[in-house]
Design a protein around this nucleic acid. Structure first.
Length: 399
RNA sequence: GGGGGAGUCGCAUAGCGGCAAUUGCAACAGACUGUAAAUCUGUCCUCUUCGGAGUUCAUUGGUUCGAGUCCAAUCUCCCCCA
C-alpha cells in the first residue's frame, strides 16, 4: 500500500460478482437490474444530467417524488474546476456534498475534450484544457481523472476518452480510438490500484469509440469487452452523424459487448432515440435534452413536442397533464402537470420567471423516466415492439 | 404673451446631403443529444417567382443630380420666462 501525489491510497483491486442481471428480453431489448451500494437501478433507465452537482432547476425532492429519478450524473471536469477537489474531499464526496443518497455516475470530462475543442490540446499523456471559468490551464490524464472520480465518489465512474466528432475522417477516428484504448489501459490500471474513499463500491465503465466506421466500432467493442468491465458505454454518437448511422453503430457494437453487462449509450437523446436504442439492446441513457430544452421552453409529451413559447398556448387553460398525458396510462403524473395550465406556463416562460424553467424541467424529466419505465414494463410483458411502433409516430409530432 | 427644443418602421433610440434607414426591447418562428446554454439563430413597412419591386422618417411646399438630414409654413408635444 502507498500514497500517491493526490493523496489516494493505492491498494490491490477488491473483486466482486456481477452486479447486473437481465431479467427479461423482447427481441434485443432487455429489462435488467444494476445493483449499486446506493440502491438498485432498474433498466432501461434514463439518468438526468447534473453537471455541476445539480440537475439544473430541479430540487431533489422533485427528482425523487415527481420524476422518480434513480440515478443522476455529475461531471468530472466541472466539479474539478468548481468547487474543486479539496472541497469535495472535505465534504466526503458528492453524495454527501449534494445530499443525493441514490446512485451517481460521473462523466470523465471526455465529452469536454470534444465540446471545448477551441481551448484544449490532446497529447498522448492526456489533454490540456483552458478552464471556461477563468481561463486557467489544466491537464487531465487517465490517471488524474480516475483520482478525481474517486474523490467525487460516484457509484459509476467513466473512463477518460476522446469523444470524436461525428464527421471525422477515418484516419482521425482510428487514431482517436486507439488513443482512447491506450487511455483506457491506464484508467483500468489506476482504477485497480486505488480503492473507493467513502466505503461504497465504484464501478468503472470503459467507452467504445470508432466514430461512424463499423470496423472501428467492432474493433473498439472487442477491445472494451476484453477488459472485463462491470458495464460498457457507447460514446461518440449523436455528435453530428445521421440518426440512421447512430442506430447502425449501436447494432454493430451491441453484437459484441458482453450480454451480461449493462450498456450505456452516452448523451442520447430524443425520446425516439431512446426507444430505438432500447430496441437494439441499450440499457442506460443520459442526455441534457429534457432539461436544456425544457429551460428553452420545449415540452416533450407522448403525443409530440410543445413549444410553450408559441402564441397558440397563451389561452390554453387546460392543466399541462390534460394535453401532455391525454389518453396515457400514467398513475404517477408530476404534481406540476396537474397544478399548472399551459397558458400559465406560457406566461411564466415569456415573463422569464424561474418557476417556468422548473416546471418544464420537471415535466420533461418525468416524461423521460415514464418513457423508460414503460419500456421496461413492455419488455417484461413481451409487447415492447408493438408499443414502440405505436408510440413512435406520436413522439415526432408537434402540438 | 415671449424664448428654446423635439416629432424616425409596436415602444425606445441612431442618423448631421448618397438610406428601406442603427441599436435595444417587444412580437412571430426555429434550433438545442456524455450542459462554457434560464442559451443561440432567423424574421420583423408592403408585395415577391427571394433576383428584386414599390411605398416611407408629423404635414405641405421649396433648395439640390440626390433630402430622414438644408429652408419655409402648418400641426402636435416638451421645457424655460412672464
Amino acid at each position: 500500500m502507498s500514497i500517491n501525489t493526490n493523496g489516494i491510497t493505492i491498494t490491490n483491486k477488491t473483486t466482486g460478482g456481477n452486479r447486473f442481471a437481465v431479467s427479461a428480453t423482447c427481441g434485443s431489448a432487455r429489462a435488467g437490474l444494476l445493483r449499486t451500494d446506493h440502491g438498485d437501478i432498474p433498466t432501461p433507465i434514463f439518468m438526468p444530467v447534473g453537471t455541476a452537482g445539480s440537475v439544473k432547476a430541479v430540487h431533489q425532492r422533485e427528482l425523487r417524488e415527481d420524476i422518480d429519478a434513480i440515478i443522476i450524473l455529475g461531471n468530472t471536469y466541472h466539479l474539478y474546476l468548481r468547487p474543486g477537489m479539496d472541497i469535495l474531499r472535505a465534504a466526503g464526496g458528492l453524495h454527501r456534498f449534494n445530499g443525493w443518497e441514490r446512485p451517481l455516475l460521473t462523466d470523465s470530462g471526455g465529452f469536454q475534450v470534444f465540446s471545448l475543442a477551441d481551448s484544449r490540446k490532446i497529447k498522448e499523456e492526456g489533454c490540456t484544457f483552458r478552464s471556461h471559468i477563468d481561463g486557467s490551464k489544466h491537464l487531465f490524464t487517465p490517471e488524474s481523472v480516475m483520482d478525481i472520480e474517486r474523490v467525487i465518489g460516484a457509484d459509476i465512474m467513466m473512463a477518460f476518452d476522446e469523444c470524436c466528432p461525428g464527421d471525422a475522417d477515418r484516419n482521425y477516428a482510428k487514431r482517436s480510438m486507439e488513443l482512447t484504448h491506450r487511455w483506457l489501459d491506464r484508467c483500468v490500471h489506476r482504477f485497480n490500484e486505488t480503492t473507493p474513499l467513502y466505503g461504497h463500491h465504484q464501478m468503472l465503465f470503459p467507452i467504445v469509440q470508432g466514430c461512424q466506421y463499423a470496423d472501428l466500432r467492432r474493433q473498439s467493442a472487442e477491445y472494451i469487452a476484453s477488459t472485463d468491465p462491470e458495464g460498457c458505454a457507447i460514446g461518440g454518437l449523436a455528435v453530428g452523424e445521421p440518426t440512421e448511422v447512430m442506430y447502425s453503430m449501436i447494432e454493430v457494437v451491441n453484437a459484441i459487448l458482453p450480454a451480461d453487462r449493462p450498456r450505456y449509450l452516452m448523451g442520447v437523446g430524443t425520446p425516439q432515440n431512446l426507444l430505438e436504442a432500447i430496441d437494439r439492446g441499450v440499457d442506460m441513457f443520459d442526455c441534457v435534452m429534457p432539461t436544456r430544452n425544457g429551460r428553452n421552453g420545449l415540452l416533450f409529451t407522448a403525443h409530440g413536442t410543445i413549444n410553450i413559447k408559441n402564441k397558440k398556448w397563451e389561452d390554453c387553460f387546460e392543466p399541462i397533464a390534460n394535453i401532455a398525458w391525454a389518453d396515457i396510462d400514467n398513475t404517477h403524473i408530476a404534481e406540476a402537470d396537474n397544478v399548472y395550465s399551459l397558458a400559465y406556463l406560457h406566461h411564466l416562460i415569456r415573463a422569464e420567471e424561474i418557476l417556468g424553467l422548473q416546471i418544464c424541467s420537471i415535466h420533461n424529466l418525468a416524461f423521460y423516466l415514464w418513457l423508460v419505465t414503460t419500456a421496461r414494463q413492455k419488455i417484461i410483458d413481451g409487447t415492447f415492439s408493438e408499443w414502440k411502433n405505436r408510440i413512435l409516430p406520436e413522439l415526432g409530432k408537434r402540438l
